[in-house]
Design a protein around this nucleic acid. Structure first.
Lengths: 151, 151
DNA sequence: GTCGAAATTTAGCCACAGCTATATTTCGTG
DNA sequence: CACGAAATATAGCTGTGGCTAAATTTCGAC
């Protein structure tokens, strides 16, 4: 096929198709940070409860084996989100703590919005765990506006 | 620490913590099928437009290299969602086509709901790409109910 | 103060999902 | 109808994120 004569007849369709790759790349990037966000939030919770986050507790709450949690912590340390000395508890850096706060807050807003539009609370909690990582700042702001207007 | 005397003082906190692993495992599973869903929907779109889905087109629209698309098609075939003969176009099985329809419909509902609560259309399209894969049937139903009630 | 249990880390495996480079096949053009 | 360009497939690499099994360290109990 010659490059100046694409096989599709509708130029509008082609335009939409051209915009798609960016969308999917964006979604892939969001997914890449999603796990780190979950671990950071979980570590934040554990520190708030116990004063430190032990690998065994992280693993248990994330539903993974101990070595998996250890590797995740390594990635967090590499990203500058957590610190730890060998065989000791894990702590968050300033950046990590800030991220944990943001994630926790976003989670709450997402759950509240889901409930506000009629999703049962329990279902909202379950779905929010996956949804929250794909909620942009703009969407989060819209959610907050909607909740303010409603209540 | 003895097993009958956990270090936390609040039994309610422990209960919530015990429920967490399932949540995360659920989110991980959802993420595992998300990519397949995207590919299936995209292949459905291409078939609707061109009568078949070529690997090069799939790769271009998904924003990945050709071999990545080829490997994805292999997984779809293994899962019984697509069929293809070597060096020829890709087609969906009955299951694949049904999944594509469901995904497309769910995407539309998610975008509509985001718009309904005040998210700009363009942002809604971007975020929906990631959000939709984590919307359960129960939540989708609630979204539809909310949209019906609204307009 | 030593020893053993518990926690952590390390090593090594698998599958996925991306990539580049190379081989193979198809198909339009001359 | 042969040939070369384009499309597809294969091979082999990287990094992620799981896992089990084995080595190491910590720490409480005696």
């Amino acid at each position: 096929m010659p490059p100046d004569a694409p096989p599709t007849c509708d130029p509008q369709t082609d335009l939409a198709a051209d915009a798609q790759p960016d969308r999917f790349q964006r979604a892939r990037e969001a997914q890449a940070v999603a796990l780190l966000e979950d671990y950071v939030e979980m570590i934040g919770d554990l520190i708030a409860e116990h004063g430190e986050a032990r690998v065994a507790d992280i693993a248990q709450r994330m539903g993974v084996a101990h070595p998996t949690a250890t590797k995740a912590v390594s990635r967090l340390k590499r990203e500058g989100l957590a610190v730890s000395r060998p065989y000791r508890g894990v702590f968050l850096t300033e950046d990590g703590a800030a991220l944990a706060d943001r994630v926790r807050q976003r989670h709450r807003v997402v759950v509240d919005l889901l409930v506000a539009v009629g999703v049962p609370r329990e279902t909202a909690e379950l779905d929010a765990e996956g949804i929250e990582h794909h909620v942009s700042d703009a969407t989060l702001h819209a959610f907050e506006g909607f909740l303010d207007a409603k209540g």
